[in-house]
Design a protein around this nucleic acid. Sequence first.
RNA 1: GGAGACGUCGCAUAGUUCGGCCUAGUGCACCACCCUGCUAAGGUGGAGUCCUCGUAAGGGGACCGCGGGUUCAAAUCCCGCCGUCUCCGCCA
Length: 430
Amino acid sequence: MIDPVLLREQPDVVRWSQQVRGSSPDLVDAALAADVARRTALTEFETLRAEQNAFSKKVGQAQGDEKKALLAEVAELAERVKAANAAANDAETAYHAAAGALENIVLEGVPAGGEADFVTLREQGTRATFDFEPKDHLELGEALGAIDMARGAKVSGSRFYFLTGIGARLEIALMNMALDRALAADFIPLITPTLVRPEIMSGTGFLGAHADEIYYLPADDLYLTGTSEVALAGFHSDEILDLSDGPLRYAGWSTCYRREAGSSGKDTRGIIRVHQFNKLEMFVYTTPEDAEAEHDRLVAWQEAMLQALGLSYRVIDVAAGDLGSSAARKFDIEAWVPTQDAYRELTSTSNCTTFQARRLNTRHRADGGKTTPVATLNGTLATTRWIVALLETHQQADGSVVIPEALRPYLGGLDRITPTPATTRPKADS
RNA sequence: GGAGACGUCGCAUAGUUCGGCCUAGUGCACCACCCUGCUAAGGUGGAGUCCUCGUAAGGGGACCGCGGGUUCAAAUCCCGCCGUCUCCGCCA
C-alpha cells in the first residue's frame, strides 16, 4: 500500500513509478477518484451519524408521549444512517482495491525496464578457471554422495531431492556460518512458522501476481511460505515499534516452499530450482530515513559471506520492471557458476520502504511522537542453492572439493571432501 | 475431535444480570507541575489508536478480540469467526 498522502499530493510521482515499472499509470487516476469518493461518502455518513447520536441522547432522556414523537422522527434518520454507512464501507473497500493495485514507488536511480535491463554495480573475485573439464554441481554432488535427485523424485516428485551425508552437513554448516555472522551483527535469530494465514500472505504482497507460485492447503486455509520474509514481516503486524535504539534486525531460519509453476523446463537439473529448500533470511525494521543506508548494509553482509566462501560474484541493481510489487529497489548478488558460464542469483535484498509496513500496520513513533509506518527490508544470507556455487567453484581435478577456510569450523575442521565409492553411498538393497 | 470458561483504553481489573446517567470507573506504570526535602510519601493536572473536515484555532466520526445482525440507541442482546485457558479423547 502506497502512502495515500503522496498519492493525493504528488500523483505524478506515482505515475512515473508505474511507468518505469512498465505498469499502468491509469491506475493512479482510478485510485485518486476512489479516494475522493471514499472521503465524500465518509463525510456524509459521519454527519448523519452525528445527528443520530444527538437524537439518541434526547430519546434516552425523554418520557411518554414526547419519547414516542422523537422515536417516530428518528426512525427515518436511522435508515439513512444505515445506508450511508453501507455506502461509506463500499467506498472504502473500493479505495483499498484501487490503491492496493498500485505498486511501491520505485526509488530514484533504479534502472527502468525489464529483467534484462539491470545495471551491474560491481564484480568481485576472479572466476574459477580449470585445467580440466569442470563437472557441474549435480555430477559432483552425486559422486560426493551429497545429492540424491532420483530418490527425491521417487518420494516427492520432480524438483525434490535428498541431501545426503556430506551434502546434508554442508547445508547445515552454511546455515550455521550465516547465522553466526548474523549474530555477530546483532540480528535476533528466529525460527519461523512456514504455514501462514491468508491475511499475512496477502499482507506481505505475495498473493498478487505470483499467487500460483504458492502452495495452499485448502483443508486448513493456510499457505506454505516461499520465504521466512512472510512470517518475519507478519511478526510485528499491528504493532508500534520502538526504534529509538536503532533498527530491529531478525535472522529467520526456515524451510521454503515454492511451486515453481511458471518455470517448467527451466533449471531442471540439480538443486538450482527446487520446490523446497532452506534459507537464512535477514529482515529489518527501521525508519524510512535509514532504509537506504540499511539496504547497503544488508548487501555488505551478503558480500562478506560470499567473499568468505571464496565465490566470484556480481552485484546487480535490478530494473524496475523486475521488482516485486513491495520493493522500491532490489539488489541481487549472483555467483559465477562455471559450468553454466553464467552468473546465478544467490541472494536478493529488497528495500520495501513503508509499503509492506503500511499493509501490515507496523509503525513507530517518530521524533514528534507521531506514529508513522516503518520501513522494512529483507535479504538472503544463505540458502541451499549456495551449495551449487560452492561445489563447482572449489572442485579439483580428482573430483574432490576444497572447503573454504571460513566454512571448515562448521564441518569439524574438514578441509576437503572427496568422492565416496558407490558402495558406501546410501543404496537400494535389490 | 468433544465439553466448558474467557477475550474491556500499556499492565491488572470494574462494568455485561435488566441495552440509554459508559463522555468506559479504579489501581499500577507513565508525563508535567506543586508541596516536601533526599535513594521516600503526598497533591493537582495530563495522557490511546485510526479516519475525516479545517491554513489554523478547533470540529465530527470510529475503536471494549474480529466481522455481521437486532434496535432510535450495543462493551452489554443474537449469529459467525479468531484466539487463550481447563478437562476429556486422539497422536508420527
